[in-house]
C-alpha cells in the first residue's frame, strides 16, 4: 500500500506514538484513581514520563494523549506552560539555579558565571558529556540560605565560588575532554 498516496491531501503528519511502559502506566493509573476526571492528570502523567525518560518527547506526548484521551494539542499547551516539563532532552542531572531576588542580592550572578565557566554551559544548555543541564528557576524558597540551587532532588545552599569549583571538579575534567 502506498503510504504516500494515502497521505496526499494532508500536510505532513510525522510524529509517531510509542507505548507507555508498564511502570509508567501503573503510576499514571494510580494518579487517575485520585482525581474525579482522568483528564486532570495530564501534568502528572507528563511528570511521570519525564521521571522515567528524562524528558518528554513527541512520541511520549502522543502516548500520554492517547492514554488519557486528551487531545495532544491541549497536552502540549499544558506541557509548555510549566517550567519543569522538558520538551527537549536534558542532561542526567538538571541544575535548577535560583536567580531570584534574595539569591541575586547575595551575589548569585557570580556563582552562575562560575558554573558557566566551569561546565561550559549557559542557561538551557547541556554539558557535552550529557551530565548537566543548567536552567534558571524562580525563587526556590530557601532565601535565608541564598544563594541556592537544586541539582536533581538535592538542595545546595550558601553557594560560593570555591564550593562550585569543588562540586563540579570531576565534571570539569569531562568538559575539557569533550571540548577538544
Amino acid at each position: 500500500m502506498s503510504e504516500n498516496k494515502l497521505m496526499k491531501n494532508s500536510v505532513i503528519t510525522t510524529s509517531l506514538s510509542r507505548e507507555l511502559t508498564a511502570a509508567e502506566i501503573s503510576e499514571i493509573e494510580h494518579e487517575i484513581s485520585l482525581y474525579p476526571d482522568k483528564r486532570a492528570v495530564g501534568l502528572e502523567a507528563l511528570k511521570i514520563v519525564q521521571r522515567h525518560q528524562g524528558w518528554v518527547s513527541d512520541e511520549s506526548m502522543r502516548a500520554i494523549s492517547n492514554y488519557l484521551d486528551i487531545p495532544v494539542a491541549d497536552l502540549e499547551g499544558v506541557a509548555t506552560f510549566f517550567n519543569l516539563i522538558y520538551r527537549r532532552p536534558v542532561g542526567k542531572k538538571v541544575i535548577l539555579f535560583c536567580d531570584s531576588v534574595s539569591c541575586w542580592v547575595m551575589g548569585c550572578d557570580r556563582i552562575k558565571q562560575k558554573i558557566t565557566d566551569q561546565l561550559g554551559i549557559d542557561y538551557g544548555e547541556t554539558t557535552s558529556d550529557g551530565e548537566y543541564t543548567l536552567i534558571p528557576v524562580p525563587c526556590l524558597g530557601d532565601c535565608d540560605k541564598a544563594p541556592v540551587m537544586m541539582i536533581g532532588e538535592e538542595m545546595h545552599r550558601h553557594l560560593d565560588e570555591e564550593g562550585i569549583e569543588s562540586l563540579f571538579r570531576n565534571a570539569a575534567v569531562n568538559k575539557s575532554g569533550g571540548d577538544s
Binding site: 531570584s100 531576588v101 534574595s102 524562580p138 525563587c139 524558597g141 530557601d142 532565601c143 535565608d144
Partner: peptide, 9 residues
C-alpha cells in the same frame, strides 16, 4: 513561589 518567601517550606 513569591520571591523571598520561605515560610511554608
Amino acid at each position: 513561589m513569591e520571591p523571598g518567601t520561605f515560610k511554608d517550606r
